[in-house]
């Protein structure tokens, strides 16, 4: 399991790798929050949960990430731990169940970087590799 940021001309790419597709999504979320704050300093104090749905597996990645951005804006939270479960194809759509742990954003403690505003379809890819799964897309900042 690992996450990283990659280059894009104007914005930032987020990439997560894991043994399972769920793990790759979790790591990708961590990559996105690492673009905003020092995730090591974010204590996983409070848990939020949500379901996400999309027309296909790839579209589910920005949908999942955008749900996290929504919670960030509305509850003023940042997150450092993520869990994705039941990522599967249902009737007519794909879905997942997500949990995220974090705390109220504190600019003095969390080393704020850049605000991510949306996860996009740009360079969007969810794929199986010999090592496991990779999930990535560019986020608009």
């Amino acid at each position: 399991m690992s996450y990283e940021l990659f280059e894009h001309r104007a914005d930032i790419g987020v990439r997560g790798k894991g043994k399972t597709c769920e793990q790759a999504f979790e790591e990708c979320a961590k990559a996105m929050f690492s673009a905003m704050v020092d995730v090591e300093r974010v204590a996983p104090k409070k848990k939020v949960q949500f379901d996400a749905h999309a027309s296909d597996l790839e579209a589910l990645l920005p949908e999942f990430l955008n749900n996290l951005l929504y919670v960030r804006d509305v509850q003023g939270m940042v997150f450092s731990r993520f869990e994705v479960k039941d990522l599967r194809q249902g009737p007519g759509q794909w879905g997942l169940k997500a949990s995220a742990w974090g705390e109220k954003f504190d600019p003095n403690r969390h080393e704020p970087k850049t605000e991510v505003k949306a996860a996009t379809f740009y360079q969007l890819s969810v794929r199986k590799t010999p090592q496991g799964f990779v999930a990535e897309c560019v986020v608009d900042v």
Binding site: E7, I12, T114, V141
Partner: peptide, 8 residues
Amino acid sequence: GRTMSRVG
């Protein structure tokens, strides 16, 4: 217009 990525 940017010529270089943020990561770069």
